[in-house]
Every structure is written in structure tokens, then in C-alpha cells.
């Protein structure tokens, strides 16, 4: 009983931490002075979302969340690489 309550407290603490981290990333995404700051914040936001999915999987004891986390990781990588490539070459004025 005590171990279960300890574990649920730890999960709630970690969830709060990751949600706070996502809020900080969103702040950087909104105020970021340059475009590369925003892309970096978006990449960190993807990573935090993946961690959030994994933690929800532990909390609900379900393995469905694993597939969601894998998809989030894949899409995050592809979209960040596309955005970085766009930052490097996509300027209209060269």
C-alpha cells in the first residue's frame, strides 16, 4: 500500500515537472528573439511531450502509450530536421 502511494506521488511529481518544463518551452517559443530559438524550443517541446506520454503510460498501466511516444519521437525528428533545413536554405533573399 505504501509503495503504491509512494509511486503515485512520484508520478504526479514528475508529471508536474514535465508540464512546467513544457510551459517554459512555450514561453521561449513565444518570446524567442530569433527563428532558431523558436525551432529549438519546438524541438524541446516534442521531447517533453514524448516523456509525458511515457509517464501517462506508467500511470495508467497501459502499453498503448508506447506507440504514441514512438510516433511523437519520429514526427519530432522529421519536423525539426525539415525546419532546420528551411532555416539554412529557405530564405527568399539570399
Amino acid at each position: 500500500m505504501t509503495t503504491a502511494s509512494l509511486l503515485s506521488a512520484a508520478i504526479v511529481f514528475a508529471l508536474v515537472c514535465v508540464v512546467l518544463a513544457m510551459i517554459l518551452c512555450t514561453l521561449r517559443l513565444l518570446i524567442g528573439p530569433s527563428a532558431q530559438d523558436r525551432v529549438l524550443a519546438l524541438d524541446t517541446l516534442w521531447m517533453c511531450a514524448m516523456l509525458l506520454a511515457l509517464m501517462l503510460g506508467i500511470r495508467h498501466g497501459s502499453q498503448i502509450y508506447f506507440e504514441a511516444a514512438l510516433m511523437i519521437a519520429l514526427l519530432g525528428f522529421v519536423s525539426t530536421v525539415a525546419l532546420a533545413k528551411f532555416l539554412m536554405r529557405g530564405e527568399v533573399i539570399e
Binding site: 503504491a4 508520478i11 514528475a14 495508467h60 498501466g61
Partner: peptide, 30 residues
């Protein structure tokens, strides 16, 4: 709460510790 009540202590302690550490580290990174 659907956390398994039958989780043995040898697993619950490291899981709790790693979760807290991981959450703190990602907060520090952000």
C-alpha cells in the same frame, strides 16, 4: 488509481527515484 498495488518494493523504489530524477532533469533543461 490504476497503479498496480502488487508492485514489489525492489521495483517501486528505483522506479520512483528515476521518475523524480527524470522530471527534475527535464525541468532544469527547459
Amino acid at each position: 488509481m490504476s497503479i498496480a498495488e502488487t508492485l514489489p518494493v525492489w521495483a517501486a523504489l528505483p522506479v520512483a527515484f528515476l521518475l523524480v530524477l527524470g522530471g527534475l532533469i527535464s525541468l532544469i533543461g527547459a
